[in-house]
């Protein structure tokens, strides 16, 4: 096989068949807002924990969509529910309700 040299890094493509999306669907049912996120990152940019912890709401939402739940849960545990992300979110997502719901839904094993 000819190596064209394009494979510099291994594929990070996500195989949606490989993880169970039931929890994400449950989250989306309870918090339809989560589907509105456009990953703009305003929330992370305004978060007071930035620079001190790895909390990043944009990432949390992306990670959950990709089934990387443990990482997302760890991040969320740093949140102070201060609500700055709620104020800046251009999509009007009620983050202060979304974040506790994430913990509630994903925590139960």
């Amino acid at each position: 096989m000819i190596d064209f040299g394009y494979g510099i890094s291994p594929s990070s493509a996500i195989n949606l068949d490989k993880f169970d999306r039931t929890r994400f669907e449950e989250l989306a049912r309870e918090e339809p807002d989560v589907l509105k996120c456009m990953a703009c990152g305003s929330c992370a940019a305004s978060c007071p924990t930035a620079g001190h912890s790895d909390m990043n709401l944009r990432k949390v939402i992306l990670l959950l969509g990709r089934g990387r739940e443990d990482e997302a849960l760890r991040m969320v545990s740093h949140c102070m529910l201060c609500g700055k992300c709620l104020i800046v979110c251009p999509r009007g997502i009620n983050t202060r309700h979304l974040i506790p719901s994430v913990t509630k839904i994903y925590q139960k094993k």
Binding site: H52, H78, P100, T103
Partner: peptide, 15 residues
């Protein structure tokens, strides 16, 4: 009624 949510505020010590 709040669901229990474990918090990890260990990073406070960095302030």
């Amino acid at each position: 009624k709040a669901a229990p949510a474990p918090a990890d505020y260990g990073y406070f010590s960095t302030y």
